[in-house]
Design a protein around this nucleic acid. Structure first.
Lengths: 127, 127
DNA sequence: TTGCATAGGGATAATTTTATCCCCTATGGT
DNA sequence: ACCATAGGGGATAAAATTATCCCTATGCAA
C-alpha cells in the first residue's frame, strides 16, 4: 500500500470497500477487536500466522481509514488499545455475513480449494 | 494463483471465503452475471478497466470454485455464457451487503481513501 | 548484567497478483 | 486475400502485497 502506479478505480461501492478491507488480515483484525481482543499482543496471539510487523501495518491502515481508533497509554511497558469506531462497528455485520457464509460452506469450500490446481503448494524438499 | 510457496491458512470462514473471492474483479463479475450480463464480451464492456485476459483468468477461477458454470455453444463465431450456480447464487446476498455498505458510505470512503498517503498516486511526468 | 514483555518501525527480500503483448481458432462477408 | 467477430491462452513484465530481519526504548525480575 504505497504510492501506486496504477490509478485506483473507485467506480462502485465494491471498489470502495475493497480499498479499506483488502488486506490479508484486516477483516480478522476487526473481528477480534470486536470480540474484545484490543491489544496488539493479544491480536498477535490470535493471529499467529501473521508477523507482528504485518499486523502493525494493517492496523495502521485500518486506523487511517477510521475503522478503528488507537489509544496509547503513557506507561512502561507500553500499553496500546484499539477500539472499533462507529464506522468500524457498522462494518461488523458485513464481515459477519461473509464469515458466516464461509462457515456454513466450510466443507465444500475446503474441498474446492484443495482441488484447485492453483492452491497446490509447491513442496520443496528440505535441503 | 499459481503454486504457492506460502501455505494457505484456512482456519476460519473468512479465510475460506477469501480464497474464492479475493481477486480484483471477482465480486464484480459475479454481480454482473447475476444481472444478466453473461457473455464474456458483455462483461468486458461492463468492466473496461480490466483486460480481457484478466477477466478470463478470474472467470476460470470462479468456475473452478463452482460459483459459476460455463456453457460453450458450438457455433461460429463462438458463443459462451456464464451462469451463477446455486452455490454462486448463495453468495449474492453477501456481495450485496458489501456493495451496499460501500454505497451507503460512498462519500466518506472516497474522502478517506484519497486522504490516505497510501493512495496517493505517483505522478510520473510524461516523457 | 542479562533477559523478558510491550510496542514500534526502516529496509529489503520474497511472493503473489495483475497487466501487457502477441498469437491462435473458424466462418462469413467484402 | 483480408478483415471482423467472439473467445482463448502462453510468456513475460510490472506492480502490489506480505514476509523477514534487525534495531529502538523502559522498567522489572532472576
Amino acid at each position: 500500500m504505497k504510492n501506486r502506479k496504477i490509478p485506483l478505480n473507485l467506480n462502485c461501492g465494491l471498489d470502495l470497500v475493497g480499498e479499506v478491507l483488502y488486506g490479508k488480515w484486516k477483516m480478522r483484525l476487526l473481528w477480534f477487536i470486536k470480540q474484545g481482543h484490543k491489544r496488539p499482543s493479544e491480536l498477535q496471539r490470535k493471529i499467529p500466522d501473521a508477523s507482528r510487523r504485518v499486523l502493525n501495518v494493517q492496523l495502521k491502515e485500518l486506523e487511517d481509514h477510521e475503522l478503528i481508533s488507537k489509544v496509547v497509554y503513557p506507561v512502561v511497558p507500553p500499553k496500546v488499545e484499539y477500539n472499533l469506531t462507529e464506522f468500524g462497528e457498522s462494518l461488523i455485520p458485513v464481515i459477519g455475513a461473509i464469515g458466516q457464509w464461509g462457515d456454513s460452506n466450510e466443507e465444500r469450500l475446503r474441498a474446492l480449494i484443495m482441488a484447485t490446481p492453483a492452491s497446490k503448494i509447491e513442496v520443496v524438499s528440505e535441503e
